[in-house]
Protein backbone atom coordinates (compact mmCIF):
# COMPACT_ATOMS: atom_id res chain seq x y z
CA UNK A 1 0.00 0.00 0.00
CA UNK A 2 1.16 3.56 -0.63
CA UNK A 3 0.91 6.28 1.98
CA UNK A 4 0.77 10.08 1.76
CA UNK A 5 1.25 10.93 5.46
CA UNK A 6 3.52 8.07 6.55
CA UNK A 7 6.79 6.62 5.33
CA UNK A 8 6.49 2.83 5.70
CA UNK A 9 9.40 0.67 4.66
CA UNK A 10 11.50 -2.38 5.60
CA UNK A 11 15.16 -2.81 6.33
CA UNK A 12 15.89 -6.49 6.90
CA UNK A 13 13.61 -7.70 9.70
CA UNK A 14 12.87 -4.17 10.81
CA UNK A 15 9.70 -2.40 9.74
CA UNK A 16 9.81 1.40 9.89
CA UNK A 17 6.67 3.43 10.49
CA UNK A 18 7.59 7.11 10.16
CA UNK A 19 5.24 10.06 10.62
CA UNK A 20 5.61 12.16 7.48
CA UNK A 21 3.85 15.49 7.80
CA UNK A 22 6.92 17.43 8.91
CA UNK A 23 5.50 20.85 8.00
CA UNK A 24 2.55 20.19 10.37
CA UNK A 25 4.58 18.84 13.28
CA UNK A 26 3.48 15.36 12.12
CA UNK A 27 0.02 16.07 13.54
CA UNK A 28 -2.60 13.46 12.70
CA UNK A 29 -5.10 14.57 10.09
CA UNK A 30 -7.93 12.33 8.89
CA UNK A 31 -5.70 10.75 6.23
CA UNK A 32 -2.94 9.90 8.71
CA UNK A 33 -5.35 8.34 11.14
CA UNK A 34 -6.63 6.03 8.41
CA UNK A 35 -3.13 5.28 7.19
CA UNK A 36 -1.88 4.45 10.69
CA UNK A 37 -4.46 1.70 11.02
CA UNK A 38 -3.47 0.29 7.63
CA UNK A 39 0.28 0.59 8.27
CA UNK A 40 0.23 -1.22 11.61
CA UNK A 41 -1.86 -4.00 10.04
CA UNK A 42 0.48 -4.25 7.06
CA UNK A 43 3.67 -4.48 9.17
CA UNK A 44 2.05 -6.85 11.64
CA UNK A 45 0.94 -9.20 8.86
CA UNK A 46 4.33 -9.27 7.10
CA UNK A 47 6.25 -12.34 8.34
CA UNK A 48 9.56 -10.75 7.30
CA UNK A 49 9.00 -7.94 9.79
CA UNK A 50 9.96 -8.94 13.34
CA UNK A 51 10.29 -5.55 15.01
CA UNK A 52 8.72 -2.17 14.26
CA UNK A 53 10.39 1.21 14.78
CA UNK A 54 8.15 4.27 15.01
CA UNK A 55 9.67 7.73 14.54
CA UNK A 56 8.99 11.06 12.81
CA UNK A 57 10.37 13.07 9.90
CA UNK A 58 11.39 16.66 10.59
CA UNK A 59 11.69 18.52 13.86
CA UNK A 60 8.72 16.98 15.69
CA UNK A 61 7.96 13.39 16.63
CA UNK A 62 4.19 13.69 16.84
CA UNK A 63 1.93 16.50 18.04
CA UNK A 64 -1.47 14.83 18.24
CA UNK A 65 -4.63 15.64 16.35
CA UNK A 66 -4.48 18.20 13.56
CA UNK A 67 -7.42 20.14 14.95
CA UNK A 68 -7.42 22.69 12.13
CA UNK A 69 -7.77 20.00 9.46
CA UNK A 70 -10.40 18.06 11.37
CA UNK A 71 -12.49 21.21 11.90
CA UNK A 72 -12.90 21.34 8.10
CA UNK A 73 -13.63 17.62 7.70
CA UNK A 74 -16.92 17.06 9.48
CA UNK A 75 -17.21 13.38 8.57
CA UNK A 76 -13.70 12.54 9.85
CA UNK A 77 -14.35 14.54 12.99
CA UNK A 78 -17.56 12.59 13.58
CA UNK A 79 -15.77 9.25 13.17
CA UNK A 80 -12.92 10.22 15.51
CA UNK A 81 -15.30 11.66 18.09
CA UNK A 82 -17.24 8.42 18.14
CA UNK A 83 -14.06 6.33 18.40
CA UNK A 84 -12.76 8.52 21.21
CA UNK A 85 -16.06 8.25 23.09
CA UNK A 86 -16.23 4.46 22.65
CA UNK A 87 -12.51 3.81 23.34
CA UNK A 88 -12.04 2.49 19.80
CA UNK A 89 -9.01 4.51 18.72
CA UNK A 90 -6.79 2.98 16.03
CA UNK A 91 -3.66 5.16 16.18
CA UNK A 92 -1.11 2.98 17.96
CA UNK A 93 0.25 -0.56 17.89
CA UNK A 94 -1.64 -1.33 21.08
CA UNK A 95 -4.91 0.03 19.64
CA UNK A 96 -4.38 -2.24 16.64
CA UNK A 97 -3.38 -5.33 18.67
CA UNK A 98 0.11 -5.57 17.17
CA UNK A 99 2.03 -8.26 19.09
CA UNK A 100 5.41 -7.60 17.52
CA UNK A 101 7.85 -5.52 19.58
CA UNK A 102 7.51 -1.78 18.90
CA UNK A 103 10.32 0.72 19.49
CA UNK A 104 9.41 4.40 19.65
CA UNK A 105 12.33 6.65 18.67
CA UNK A 106 11.28 10.14 19.74
CA UNK A 107 13.08 12.60 17.48
CA UNK A 108 11.67 15.91 18.72
CA UNK A 109 8.63 17.37 20.41
CA UNK A 110 6.03 14.82 21.47
CA UNK A 111 2.89 16.70 22.40
CA UNK A 112 -0.63 15.82 23.51
CA UNK A 113 -1.96 12.95 21.42
CA UNK A 114 1.63 12.23 20.40
CA UNK A 115 2.08 10.76 23.86
CA UNK A 116 -0.11 7.83 22.72
CA UNK A 117 2.86 6.52 20.76
CA UNK A 118 5.17 6.63 23.79
CA UNK A 119 2.59 5.20 26.17
CA UNK A 120 1.82 2.30 23.82
CA UNK A 121 5.36 1.33 22.75
CA UNK A 122 7.43 -1.47 24.28
CA UNK A 123 10.81 0.23 24.13
CA UNK A 124 11.29 4.01 23.99
CA UNK A 125 14.44 5.93 23.15
CA UNK A 126 14.82 9.62 22.35
CA UNK A 127 17.13 12.20 20.88
CA UNK A 128 18.55 14.88 23.16
CA UNK A 129 16.20 17.29 21.36
CA UNK A 130 13.05 15.38 22.32
CA UNK A 131 10.62 17.08 24.70
CA UNK A 132 7.33 15.92 26.14
CA UNK A 133 4.38 18.22 26.75
CA UNK A 134 0.66 17.67 27.18
CA UNK A 135 -1.17 20.88 26.24
CA UNK A 136 -4.70 19.44 26.43
CA UNK A 137 -5.86 21.42 29.48
CA UNK A 138 -4.34 24.62 28.11
CA UNK A 139 -6.81 24.51 25.24
CA UNK A 140 -9.76 23.30 27.30
CA UNK A 141 -9.36 19.62 26.47
CA UNK A 142 -9.13 16.66 28.80
CA UNK A 143 -5.97 14.56 28.96
CA UNK A 144 -7.05 10.94 29.35
CA UNK A 145 -5.98 7.93 27.28
CA UNK A 146 -2.31 8.79 26.86
CA UNK A 147 -1.78 9.78 30.47
CA UNK A 148 -3.81 6.87 31.85
CA UNK A 149 -1.46 4.50 30.04
CA UNK A 150 1.61 6.50 31.09
CA UNK A 151 0.76 6.41 34.81
CA UNK A 152 0.79 2.61 34.59
CA UNK A 153 4.31 2.52 33.27
CA UNK A 154 6.11 5.38 34.98
CA UNK A 155 6.15 7.27 38.27
CA UNK A 156 2.79 9.03 38.49
CA UNK A 157 3.75 12.48 39.73
CA UNK A 158 5.65 13.29 36.56
CA UNK A 159 2.69 12.33 34.37
CA UNK A 160 0.11 14.26 36.39
CA UNK A 161 2.43 17.26 36.48
CA UNK A 162 2.68 17.16 32.71
CA UNK A 163 -1.11 16.83 32.35
CA UNK A 164 -1.83 19.75 34.70
CA UNK A 165 0.92 22.18 33.66
CA UNK A 166 -0.30 21.82 30.07
CA UNK A 167 1.52 23.90 27.50
CA UNK A 168 3.36 25.86 30.20
CA UNK A 169 6.06 23.30 30.93
CA UNK A 170 8.04 20.66 29.05
CA UNK A 171 9.62 17.44 30.25
CA UNK A 172 13.12 16.96 28.84
CA UNK A 173 14.53 13.76 27.36
CA UNK A 174 17.10 13.28 30.12
CA UNK A 175 14.50 13.65 32.90
CA UNK A 176 12.25 11.20 31.03
CA UNK A 177 15.14 8.74 31.03
CA UNK A 178 15.77 9.20 34.76
CA UNK A 179 12.09 8.50 35.41
CA UNK A 180 12.20 5.34 33.31
CA UNK A 181 9.68 6.65 30.74
CA UNK A 182 12.42 5.89 28.23
CA UNK A 183 15.68 4.01 28.44
CA UNK A 184 18.19 5.84 26.27
CA UNK A 185 18.97 9.36 25.04
CA UNK A 186 21.22 9.78 21.99
CA UNK A 187 22.48 12.61 19.79
CA UNK A 188 19.88 13.65 17.19
CA UNK A 189 22.01 12.46 14.29
CA UNK A 190 22.33 9.01 15.81
CA UNK A 191 18.72 8.33 16.74
CA UNK A 192 17.67 6.24 13.74
CA UNK A 193 20.92 4.34 13.64
CA UNK A 194 20.58 3.46 17.33
CA UNK A 195 16.91 2.51 16.97
CA UNK A 196 17.92 0.27 14.07
CA UNK A 197 20.65 -1.38 16.16
CA UNK A 198 18.25 -2.11 19.02
CA UNK A 199 15.69 -3.43 16.54
CA UNK A 200 18.28 -5.67 14.94
CA UNK A 201 19.13 -7.24 18.33
CA UNK A 202 15.47 -7.67 19.29
CA UNK A 203 14.86 -9.20 15.85
CA UNK A 204 17.26 -12.05 16.65
CA UNK A 205 14.93 -13.39 19.35
CA UNK A 206 12.09 -15.88 18.83
CA UNK A 207 9.12 -14.08 17.22
CA UNK A 208 6.62 -16.48 18.80
CA UNK A 209 8.15 -16.15 22.27
CA UNK A 210 8.17 -12.36 21.93
CA UNK A 211 4.51 -12.27 20.88
CA UNK A 212 3.51 -14.41 23.89
CA UNK A 213 5.74 -12.28 26.13
CA UNK A 214 4.10 -9.11 24.88
CA UNK A 215 0.61 -10.50 25.53
CA UNK A 216 1.67 -11.56 29.04
CA UNK A 217 3.31 -8.24 29.94
CA UNK A 218 0.57 -5.98 28.57
CA UNK A 219 -1.84 -8.19 30.49
CA UNK A 220 -0.07 -6.96 33.63
CA UNK A 221 -1.74 -3.57 33.04
CA UNK A 222 -5.20 -5.09 32.88
CA UNK A 223 -5.66 -7.21 35.99
CA UNK A 224 -4.51 -7.60 39.58
CA UNK A 225 -1.12 -9.21 40.13
CA UNK A 226 -2.40 -12.73 40.79
CA UNK A 227 -4.88 -12.69 37.88
CA UNK A 228 -2.26 -11.25 35.51
CA UNK A 229 0.26 -13.84 36.68
CA UNK A 230 -2.22 -16.66 36.04
CA UNK A 231 -2.86 -15.42 32.51
CA UNK A 232 0.89 -14.98 32.01
CA UNK A 233 1.57 -18.51 33.23
CA UNK A 234 -0.74 -19.85 30.53
CA UNK A 235 1.10 -17.86 27.83
CA UNK A 236 4.37 -19.27 29.16
CA UNK A 237 3.30 -22.90 29.28
CA UNK A 238 1.67 -22.62 25.84
CA UNK A 239 5.12 -22.10 24.27
CA UNK A 240 6.58 -25.26 25.79
CA UNK A 241 5.63 -27.33 22.75
CA UNK A 242 6.63 -24.80 20.12
CA UNK A 243 9.57 -25.73 17.82
CA UNK A 244 11.52 -22.59 18.90
CA UNK A 245 11.99 -24.17 22.31
CA UNK A 246 14.25 -26.86 20.88
CA UNK A 247 15.75 -24.65 18.18
CA UNK A 248 16.89 -22.03 20.74
CA UNK A 249 19.09 -24.31 22.85
CA UNK A 250 20.24 -26.28 19.74
CA UNK A 251 21.45 -23.09 18.02
CA UNK A 252 23.18 -22.03 21.21
CA UNK A 253 24.96 -25.38 21.53
CA UNK A 254 26.00 -25.25 17.84
CA UNK A 255 27.06 -21.59 18.11
CA UNK A 256 24.83 -20.40 15.26
CA UNK A 257 21.87 -18.05 14.83
CA UNK A 258 18.55 -19.79 15.53
CA UNK A 259 16.15 -20.45 12.65
CA UNK A 260 12.93 -19.40 14.31
CA UNK A 261 9.53 -20.69 13.24
CA UNK A 262 6.88 -18.17 12.17
CA UNK A 263 4.63 -16.76 14.92
CA UNK A 264 1.60 -18.66 13.70
CA UNK A 265 3.11 -22.16 14.14
Amino acid sequence: MSYTTLDVHREGHVGWLIFDRPDRGNAMDAAMMNELEAAWAELDADPEVRVIVNTGNGAAFQTGLDVAQLAQDKEALRVQSRRTRDAELRFTAWHNAVWKPVIAAVNGVCAGGGLHFVADADIVIASTEATFVDPHVSVGQVSAYETIALVRRSPMEAVVRMALTGSHERLGAERARQLGILSEVVAPGRLRQRAGEIAELVGRNSPAAMAATKRALWGAFEAGLTEASKAGALELAAMWWHPDQTEGPAAWAEKREPQWAPIST
Binding site: D122, I123, V124, R152, R153, S154, P155, L179, G180, I181, L182, S183, R204, N205, S206, A208, A209, M210, A212, T213, A216, L217, G219, A220, F221, L225, A228, S229, G232, A233, E235, L236, A238, M239, H242, D244, Q245, T246, E247, G248, P249, W252, P258, W260
Partner: peptide, 22 residues
Amino acid sequence: HVSVGQVVSVEAIGLMRKMPAE
Protein backbone atom coordinates in the same frame (compact mmCIF):
# COMPACT_ATOMS: atom_id res chain seq x y z
CA HIS B 1 14.16 -16.03 27.73
CA VAL B 2 13.15 -14.91 24.23
CA SER B 3 16.67 -15.52 22.91
CA VAL B 4 16.18 -19.25 23.52
CA GLY B 5 12.52 -19.37 22.47
CA GLN B 6 11.02 -18.99 25.96
CA VAL B 7 8.33 -16.58 27.11
CA VAL B 8 8.95 -13.84 29.68
CA SER B 9 5.99 -13.80 31.97
CA VAL B 10 5.24 -14.06 35.68
CA GLU B 11 8.39 -12.44 37.10
CA ALA B 12 8.19 -9.50 34.70
CA ILE B 13 4.48 -9.03 35.37
CA GLY B 14 5.38 -8.60 39.03
CA LEU B 15 8.26 -6.23 38.28
CA MET B 16 6.09 -4.03 36.06
CA ARG B 17 3.91 -3.26 39.08
CA LYS B 18 6.88 -2.07 41.08
CA MET B 19 9.05 -0.07 38.70
CA PRO B 20 8.90 1.79 35.40
CA ALA B 21 7.64 -0.73 32.85
CA GLU B 22 9.71 0.33 29.85
